[in-house]
Design a protein around this nucleic acid. Structure first.
Lengths: 241, 241
DNA sequence: CCAAAAGTGTTCTGCGTACACCCATGG
DNA sequence: CCATGGGTGTACGCAGAACACTTTTGG
């Protein structure tokens, strides 16, 4: 493919570029989980026509980077986030999605352990975590992008062990269950949930307990990333909560 | 997001565009099924550096169309295909994926009933169906795009009733089973397959049989699209072969 | 009557699901 | 000793998986 294009380009690359080129951006849907609710990292627009509305973090894709690289750069430069879970969701390309010009954007979603990062290296000083329930009437088509990303997250959470990316390194089984219940919007049976997780054999029992609670302290676990990667590589991985 | 961008753009849209714009294309992975094998619709490149290699069908995205519209246009204009199953797969954006310039492409895969379309309205006269096993060493990064699309197809085939898009309107249960076995690369138990499909209740028994075979003729079925769409709308749809 | 593919039922096993009580700790 | 959340086992039903023979047609 692109054959027709190649012919034309050979005749006049400059002309083709000026006729067909368009701006490409990456938008990052950044999810965080804080005790008991799912949050979204956004900034507030300062300029018309979206002044005062929330907006996802995004930027133009530079000439010397792939889309994945662009997403990682945005997360690092603008929010100080590094080495976090990132996944492409979908391209958004409605003709009128941007008021100034034709802009195609590729959405990524990412998962952050709130608290572990302080956002202090962030370029944007006005970043803020908002409740997912407040995330509506956002700038551009970001409501749609968020909806789509949220649906993707729900699907993935059931088929891959990515929930751990939203929790501290050490977590209790109840925290994990709450995460699933919050994100998926369902309730789960405690015993069944534990049996299921046990059978997956992807948790490391740290032989530690909580120490700052005023009731029976829960046992702490961590996610066994090595086993997961190994099993993933060998295709021995099955998952379904 | 895009806020930084908006500021800059306001100062000088033309300059920003000339600095950051890039070419965006759509590539179509067109799958067809012919009796007993999965095929791919390609053209042969006529120019260097990919002369003689197979290539997916693709084109530049025009300024006045979304990516979905672009994919549909390519399928119709260049292959004469219309009203077929189409789904976005992923964006491909490696810096060096195109020899002439920075080109980001968004891949779509589509499913065609071979035979139903004659490709006669196609712009490209040198279109051809090739066996999937022949589809290697293709132009650009099309090997990677094909791999990714094929994996997507396998996943979808198990979770949504899209296999019907590859078969004639009237088909036998054995044809359907063969399709699943071919695409997924597995063998299925005939009785279990039929029981499963029966329980889905998405097939219409046409009370017709084959008439051109020299053995016991099989019953013919068609896919109940209305019921499927209704159930999909109501969220009552579960599927898992 | 022979070849070729169509069609059909039963058993077993494992997994998801429903469900209620005792335990450990801090205050 | 009380409040709070932590932690545990069993029984049932359904769906997936394994498995072999009879039926119908054309030649």
């Amino acid at each position: 493919m692109l054959d027709k294009y190649v012919e034309v380009v050979k005749e006049n690359l400059t002309e083709v570029k000026s006729t067909y080129s368009c701006l490409v951006t990456v938008d990052c849907v950044i999810f965080g989980y804080d005790q008991s609710s799912l949050k979204l990292l956004v900034i507030k627009c300062k300029d018309e026509p979206f002044k005062g509305q929330y907006s996802l973090l995004g930027d133009i894709v530079f000439a010397d980077e792939s889309l994945d690289e662009s997403a990682k750069r945005i997360l690092k430069q603008r929010a100080g986030l590094e080495n976090i879970y990132v996944e492409e969701v979908k391209a958004f390309s409605a003709k009128d999605r941007h008021p100034l010009d034709r802009v195609i954007t590729v959405a990524y979603y990412s998962l952050v352990k709130i608290g572990q990062y302080e956002l202090k290296d962030a370029q944007d000083r006005d970043l803020q975590w908002i409740e997912l329930s407040e995330a509506h009437n956002m700038a551009y088509d970001h409501d749609l992008i968020l909806q789509t990303s949220m649906n993707r997250l729900k699907v993935r959470l059931r088929e891959r062990p990515i929930g751990f990316n939203l929790l501290p390194k050490r977590f209790t089984l109840n925290q994990l269950q709450n995460l699933y219940e919050t994100v998926l919007g369902i309730t789960l049976d405690k015993r069944n949930f534990r049996r299921k997780l046990n059978s997956l054999d992807l948790l490391i029992d740290l032989d530690q307990t909580q120490d700052d609670v005023s009731h029976r302290p829960a046992k702490l676990y961590s996610f066994d990333m090595d086993t997961y990667k190994l099993r993933k590589k060998n295709g021995n991985l099955q998952f379904d909560i």
